[in-house]
Amino acid sequence: MIKGLWDRETVALMWLVAVFPLAIVWIHHGGLDAVGRLIFFLAVAGFWHVIFMLVRAQPPSWAGVVTALALAILAQQELGLVPLLIGTSFGVVIAELVFGGWGRNVLNPATVTLAFLGFGFPSAPWPDIIVPVGWAAIPVALIGILAGVMSLRIVAGAVLVLGIAWMMGLDMSETYPALLVGLVLLVCDPVASASTALGRWLNGILFGGLAAMFLAYWSEAAAVQIVVSAALLASLVAPILDEIAIALWLARRRRRLG
């Protein structure tokens, strides 16, 4: 008889609120150039959201803004307009809108766009994430976890593994800002990540493990490229992690309750 708050758009708006600190720090350091990039990606993602609203009656989502922000921060630089248009359209349409919009997608559209651009235009340079932007990811994670739209387990799992790798001597002094930004913008997407308690731990651990492995053995890759690859693979495996978590949960219950 009475109705609560947490429908899809509330979650999307809370996610947007959570990434605000990151957006502000990034725009502050990037200046007009950053604003221009953000507006470009907002326009492209928004265009496709409107097209799908008109043609398929899919309500647009605020999550598209987070996608645009992630692309503006992480997409390759010095790419022409056309590659960026193609890449963004591919990611937004194929990874999100054709599934029925945010909430029904399997992969994060920003992750797919970045992977597409990475494979399609391997020679374009990846952006450097500066240190203050990396630190800004910490309030993002805090707000997101407190509001319940990001999972503490994913963040903790990733930080745990990366921390162990760092203690074992892996050099992350140059790459940690990109890892943090990728973690909060790409991996912590509530829809594209694992959805069970154990699955989320595994998801975070897998992302951290893949990122650490790429850092150690993939010497010519840029930091953002490593983050995107690890995020894409972790997100692809997320449903299997959920399956594992459910199987273990069922086995434990069977042992306890007979």
């Binding site: 899809r8 309500p59 509530p190 308690a197 949960w249």
Partner: peptide
């Protein structure tokens, strides 16, 4: 618009887990 998108997607959040009391894998 609101009629066309039934069933509405459910986003996995902490609120959803709490509503089940953490008793089972909600999603």
């Amino acid at each position: 618009l609101s009629r066309a998108s039934r069933p509405k997607p459910l986003i996995p959040t902490a609120a959803l887990e709490q509503a089940f009391g953490g008793a089972l894998p909600a999603v």
